[in-house]
């Protein structure tokens, strides 16, 4: 790969990148956080959640799939884009059944953490309360469709990292559902240590008998917002 250095700007800040970097990768290295949900470092980007939408030379693009190019002008932390991301997160909350109060992933959930980061106290859209299925057939892994946001991280991780292809999708649009390569989860060769389980950003794929192990106050997003692992610490006020 050509590793020639290029520069572009995000919100006026000069960013150095290597040719072949996506906007998101270059931004991460420069300490600029672009919110994302379906992206994971070890996986090929999918560009499906659109939370990382930025404006590139005025045009909306998914930062996780769009390659960085010399001289491009990227807008990231603008009121318009913050609003768009808030709306996407709102919609993900109302079109599933996200009962954070008893979810094992609460405090470590990326969807919830994004809502915290954006200061969402209640979604502005009406709740749909869809009927979704739970698969508890497997001895060690639970799949709760109520919490699935169809980011496809488990699908990609199972294929690319576990070499198993346990997960996939069926249906389209609002009917799109997580599916397994078997009549139920127990009939697949999924196992609790699989990358696919750890890849789930919400509480859809859960390892059994370890829920609530980390006490409140010591979970990933209890004290600092998602993205603060990328951003340099804010100057003291």
């Amino acid at each position: 790969m050509n590793t020639e250095a290029i520069t572009f700007t995000i919100d006026g800040k000069k960013i150095e990148a290597r040719r072949g970097d996506t906007i998101l990768e270059a931004a991460d290295r420069a300490g600029v956080y672009i919110p994302r949900l379906c992206w994971m470092k070890e996986l090929l980007p999918a560009g499906v959640c659109r939370v990382c939408t930025v404006r590139v030379n005025g045009r909306p693009q998914a930062a996780c799939t769009q390659p960085a190019a010399a001289g491009m002008v990227v807008e990231n932390d603008t009121e318009e884009l913050r609003q768009l991301r808030r709306d996407l997160i709102d919609m993900l909350f109302v079109e599933g059944n996200h009962f954070c109060m008893f979810c094992e992933r609460s405090g470590n959930c990326e969807l919830q953490a994004l809502a915290y980061r954006f200061g969402i106290t209640a979604p502005k859209y009406p709740f749909l309360f869809p009927r979704r299925s739970v698969d508890a057939s497997h001895p060690d892994v639970l799949a709760d469709g109520n919490r699935c946001i169809r980011c496809g991280r488990c699908v990609r991780a199972s294929r690319a990292l576990d070499g198993k292809s346990v997960f996939g999708f069926t249906g389209r649009g609002p009917q799109k559902r997580l599916a397994f390569n078997g009549p139920n989860l127990a009939a697949t060769d999924v196992a609790a240590p699989d990358h696919a389980i750890a890849a789930c950003p919400t509480g859809t794929l859960i390892v059994k008998r370890v829920g609530y192990k980390v006490p409140i106050g010591r979970r990933l997003y209890d004290h600092s917002p998602i993205g603060s692992e990328i951003e340099p610490p804010a100057p003291e006020k």
Partner: peptide, 15 residues
């Protein structure tokens, strides 16, 4: 949570 999103009682909404 019950006031803002229905909470635990809203688990009946799927039935």
């Amino acid at each position: 949570d019950c006031a803002t999103n229905g909470g635990i009682p809203a688990m009946r909404n799927m039935v």
